[in-house]
């Protein structure tokens, strides 16, 4: 066996669901072990990933300029954007928690959008010198994506608990946009096939 060969070049397809390695024979398209359809690479990986990424770029704007929640206190409303909520946490001395929310709702989504864009560009322009580094980045992106849901769950808790006749917390329109950004980028990462980084 020649060193460092891609399985596909040797005529093998790995089943995406169960990991079974199948020798490619003409048009055999189902896995003999789990019956799922075989694909050499994720179908339409780049197109799907790009489409999902572009949608999340657009939704990222309303997610950051509209209020994510409003605190109603005896008739006066106080609207917070994502960034505003973090500033308020830090101002009131809760610095570690403020940093945590900053990482989950600003740093992670932003670097995810940039990271997936870079991955798509690196496949498109075949920047293969750093394939290993790109793969590592893909792994980090796929791992941290879900943690951005922190803000959304927190709103669900706050809205539920702070619901008194005088004081109420109301979820704002940015919550919908932000949840959509998190989910769409998760799908974008899931649809990206890192093996494309290694294909010659």
């Amino acid at each position: 066996m020649p060193a460092k060969m891609n399985a596909l070049q040797q005529g093998f397809i790995r089943c995406h669901d169960c990991g079974y390695l199948v020798k490619k024979i003409n048009q055999q398209s189902f896995c003999p072990r789990c019956d799922s359809q075989l694909h050499e690479r994720r179908p339409h990986s780049l197109q799907r990933s790009t489409a999902l990424l572009l949608s999340s770029f657009f939704l990222y704007i309303p997610a950051n300029i509209f209020p994510i929640m409003t605190v109603n206190q005896f008739g006066t409303g106080d609207a917070h954007t994502i960034a505003g909520g973090i500033v308020e946490l830090i101002d009131s001395g809760m610095i570690p928690i403020g940093l945590l929310v900053f990482v989950a709702s600003i740093l992670v989504p932003t670097s995810k959008l940039i990271g997936i864009s870079l991955l798509l560009l690196s496949v498109h322009f075949r920047w293969q010198i750093n394939a290993r580094r790109w793969t590592m980045m893909y792994r980090v992106i796929a791992f941290v994506g879900r943690w951005s849901m922190l803000d959304i769950f927190m709103i669900s808790i706050l809205v539920d608990l702070v619901n008194f006749s005088g004081v109420q917390i109301i979820a704002g329109p940015a919550a919908i946009a932000f949840a959509a950004v998190v989910i769409l980028t998760m799908f974008a990462a899931e649809n990206f096939d890192p093996r494309l980084l290694w294909d010659k």
């Binding site: 891609n6 399985a7 390695l21 793969t135 792994r139 290694w198």
Partner: peptide
């Protein structure tokens, strides 16, 4: 993994015989 003993890395598609 299959009966041939070969395996492929799911993220870089390297053919491995382990």
């Amino acid at each position: 993994m299959n009966s041939t003993g070969f395996d492929a890395c799911p993220e870089c598609d390297l053919l491995i015989n382990l």
